[in-house]
Design a protein around this nucleic acid. Structure first.
Lengths: 247, 247
DNA sequence: CGATTTCTTGACTTCGGTCAAACCTGGTGG
DNA sequence: CCACCAGGTTTGACCGAAGTCAAGAAATCG
């Protein structure tokens, strides 16, 4: 996959995540200050962006691609605890070292800010602090949603939940929302899905096959997914089929 | 259980959570403004403080007691997604309706602020917004920690994890930290523990018995717990026994 | 003291995990 | 062009941890 985004934007106003990232509320002057401390970095799929425990020199936003926050136990059991999509923020102001591994799931472009200057800027720029609070509250909601999935749903429901989340996100990006069938490419391997859902990759594979056999999803190859009936998928996920207006 | 805290504090400076709650960084003038929009409410153990979906007229802090955030599926499966201890914040500025049920696990006293005035005050008081961001980031970390527990730990490890969290909190409150053995009363029923851990109450009971039989914990009655060896408990939880310095 | 809630324990079932083998699919080099 | 390989994936056989159903025991409370 080749990257369509030139590595150095002359200015933030062209940025694809301008209106959704931590800089969303910033005015021209504030953007100018951010421009001065920003730089871009790219990572290839599979690369580790940050190791848990490492010193953090920067915070930043995912511009394109998908990254994941992952926790690992000594014996190797791993659990993904966050899925970072374009515009999502990485790093915690005020913290010295990283609390989780950050992995590039696909090729990733990040817009990085040197940490110290960013913290100083944030301290005197309510627009940034306010946006970061909003985003953090949204992430907390997402994490809590996920706790229900991890704690109480069956394997089939877990898979359906993940697919419906990805489908919903893709639908919100494409111009023709509500258009069925929904079609997308899975950005995750079966193993990554398993790590997200607290399952083994074998169980993920089996449940994908079962959902396919039952006509809930269509598969071409391993990654290309078609969802003929979104309502059906959400029923399978155990979610309230009507009131699903989250984000 | 009788409440030791008088319902109306003449001023915030006497408040037991003054230095930990959302008002922690406030100066005298800011506190005076908060005093004007605050009021106290009490709830009995088992009462519902807020129903998911209800209109929120207030936000606030837990002053004493324990509350829980809980999600429920249509078929009755429930998952606790947050445990609210004294000084924890309830409600989300900018949101109209509650996203989760809030239940009083024990008798609870809350310090409430009328929502509208609080939001206005927050908008012009960086001290409050900054503290709320800090607290939200901490909650997010706790939620992610819990995702590892829910997704990857065995029933025995889950119980040990919950006990070590409660023990650690109690140890941080008591003056003589690091003092072993650690002794405390479980503030949760077996069912609440199960809802927290994504287990059934039978499994919770069995694993509690097993940990008791193996000498990891001592039980007097059902609720009074003694932990003779905190390191041992943390091993059982599958946590790194040394670097465990989280909050 | 009953009565009710909470907890424990047992017997059995089941869902998802483990181990192992085979299957694609796309890339590499002969 | 094809053989071969490697990573990702699928599928099968079997197992075990946790769930379900049910009966009692213990604590709590009017």
């Amino acid at each position: 996959m080749t990257l369509q985004i030139p590595l150095e934007h002359s200015n933030c106003s062209d940025c694809p995540i301008r209106h959704r990232a931590v800089c969303a509320h910033c005015d021209g002057d504030e953007l100018a200050e951010l421009e001065e401390i920003k730089y871009y970095r790219t990572f290839e799929a599979g690369q580790t962006i940050i190791w848990s425990g490492d010193q953090m020199n920067f915070v930043g936003s995912v511009v394109s691609g998908i990254a994941s926050l992952t926790q690992t136990m000594e014996d190797g059991r791993t659990q993904m605890v966050g899925l970072l999509l374009p515009s999502d923020f990485v790093g915690r102001p005020g913290r010295e070292s990283a609390a989780y591994d950050v992995l590039a799931t696909t090729d990733v472009v990040m817009c990085c800010f040197r940490k110290k200057p960013f913290e100083e800027l944030m301290a005197r720029t309510p627009h940034i602090a306010h946006r970061l609070l909003q985003m953090t509250l949204d992430e907390l909601d997402a994490a809590r949603e996920w706790m229900l999935v991890l704690g109480r749903k069956t394997a089939r429901e877990k898979i359906a939940s993940l697919l419906s989340i990805i489908a919903r996100r893709d639908a919100s990006i494409s111009k023709d929302r509500r258009a069925e069938p929904i079609v997308f490419d899975l950005p995750l391997t079966r193993e990554a899905m398993a790590d997200y859902l607290g399952l083994t990759l074998e169980t993920v594979s089996r449940q994908m096959s079962a959902l396919k056999k039952d006509g809930v999803i269509l598969l071409e190859g391993k990654r290309h997914v078609t969802i003929p009936d979104m309502g059906r998928l959400m029923e399978e996920a155990g979610d309230d089929t009507d009131g699903g207006f989250l984000v």
